[in-house]
Amino acid sequence: MKILVSVKRVIDYNVKVRVKTDHTAVDLTNVKMSMNPFCEIAVEEAIRLKEKGVASEVVVVSVGSKSCQETLRTALALGADRAIQVETEDGLDSLSVAKLLAKVAKEEAADLVIMGKQAIDSDNNQTGQMVAALLDYPQATFASEVVIENGEAQVTREIDGGLQTLAITLPAVVTTDLRLNEPRFASLPNIMKAKRKPLDVKTPADLGVEIGSNVSIVSVTPPPQRAGGIKVGSVAELVDKLKNEAKVVS
């Protein structure tokens, strides 16, 4: 079984995000970039399936400028077998990305596509679902457990109010939630080895995909700041404030 995993390069999860003063975008200059955390979980899951002997090959793909090769090398160091960069400008819209990924999945004849449920920059939570729709594949989003058996994936999903288990026929798309696994760290020897693993570069034209979007950004502004309040000295004072000042407790 072949697994395709998509990875996205985003602002590191620990970096404080700042909006450009001209309110056109978030400032990405000299900011630490890393693999999107949900993509790390996707890579980890694919590698575990390979280690268990369920998968035979793990291919990672990223859509963006040359800098996303760094993210692909990270995935290779973690254990993926080879990588594909689809060369585009950064910050492409989700539907264009989905079209490119769907094409790669088809060309690679991937049995399973594993993706993060969302990227922590645009927070869209949609690309995996779009890839599945474009390929007419079944999907299991927000996965917290994946079991592959008899050409099916039994996936436990994190839904509002609890968990749901679906059985989907392969080929299929799975998107990862936080509790699916805890990603490993790449070891130094593996980081060295990853430099020699194959990395192909393709263009949207190679894949026969026309990219473009009808959505434009009007502005990006910082969120309204919340003014800090006061410190209270005791539980009694707190309860008094809640009852008589804020009037949120009767």
Binding site: L95, I159, D160
Partner: peptide
Amino acid sequence: ATTTGKNTLPRVAALLDVAQLSD
């Protein structure tokens, strides 16, 4: 924008060949 809406609506957008604005 619940887990049900987030699960289904992007498929609708892709099938209609349009974007989805989330949340």
